[in-house]
């Protein structure tokens, strides 16, 4: 489903020299699987999520990234989204003046338009929203407020998963979704995420800690260090990391 081959990418800040962050990363997530990417600070975890979603200032210098065989790197961010690629942001942006529901409906319809599907009707949208909000225990009033403005860290993360449930993406990247969540919120969010697991979908769970993986059980775990995958294994790899830290793998890299 998602396939990254010998990917090299650099960050190009507006002021300052470009820095290579991803240095030959290869990874394949087959349909129906959930893979975790773990790594220390500065390993390139967030850069990877921005490179895959096409943020400005993140430049791929070589290698390939495909979703279902299609070249992701040639597409604009909105086209990637319409193909079903969704990023749950580590730090969701505040969007002043745009209520959550207005925004999500606009996003849903924009994606449908790109795919040549009819728009969602108002009653259908409200029904979907009600179900998603209930699942994540989101107060419906929150959905009328401007997106993320004045929301707590935990509320913002819940809202990311709410959008994920509404947009029903085919491939999800969860970037540090556990940060800012207390244990109860983490369980609610994980339930929401698990509800989207299925044979046609794939997921990349980027995390610093093993904790999230107790609730979102990965099929494979990869360790990212200095821009490359240095070790891959089953869920037991995450437990080993938790016990003895990243150092052992960083030395190996």
């Amino acid at each position: 489903m998602l396939e990254l081959t010998n990917l090299h990418a650099r960050v190009v800040p507006e002021d300052g020299p470009a820095r290579e962050i991803i240095k030959g990363l290869s990874l394949a997530v087959p349909a129906g699987e959930v893979h975790a990417v773990m790594g220390p600070n500065g390993a390139g975890k967030s850069t990877l999520s921005y490179v895959l979603t096409g943020k400005n200032g993140y430049e791929v210098t070589s290698g390939a990234a495909t979703l279902d065989g299609e070249n992701l790197l040639a597409m604009a961010p909105e086209a990637r989204a319409a193909k079903g690629l969704f990023l749950s942001f580590q730090y969701p942006t505040e969007i002043a003046g745009v209520p959550v529901m207005t925004f999500v409906r606009a996003a849903m319809n924009a994606q449908r338009k790109t795919r040549g599907e009819p728009e969602v009707s108002a009653p259908e949208f409200l029904k979907l929203s009600k179900v998603a909000a209930a699942k994540l225990r989101i107060d419906p009033d929150m959905l009328k407020r401007p997106l993320n403005v004045g929301f707590s860290g935990g509320e913002k993360k819940r809202l990311e998963i709410y959008q994920m449930l509404m947009l029903e993406p085919r491939f999800m990247i969860l970037d540090e979704t556990d940060s800012g969540l207390d244990i109860d919120a983490l369980k609610v969010v994980a339930e929401g995420v698990n509800a989207l697991r299925g044979p046609g979908r794939g997921m990349l769970v980027i995390t610093h800690y093993q904790r999230l993986l107790d609730y979102i059980k990965p099929d494979r775990v990869h360790i990212l260090s200095a821009g490359r995958i240095v070790k891959s294994g089953g869920p037991e790899l995450a437990l080993a990391l938790e016990k003895s830290g990243y150092d052992q793998f960083m030395k190996a890299s």
Binding site: T53, G54, K55, N56, A76, P77, E78, R80, A81, A82, F86, L87, F89, P92, T93, E94, I95, A96, G97, V98, F103, V104, A106, A107, M108, A110, Q111, T114, P146, Q163, L167
Partner: peptide, 22 residues
């Protein structure tokens, strides 16, 4: 903010209009 909207599928030009309008 523009990138956030585009990541959700809203084309660049519409994302700019939406933010500016708000």
């Amino acid at each position: 903010a523009i990138f956030y909207l585009r990541q959700r599928g809203i084309p660049d030009v519409d994302a700019r209009a939406m933010i500016t309008r708000a």
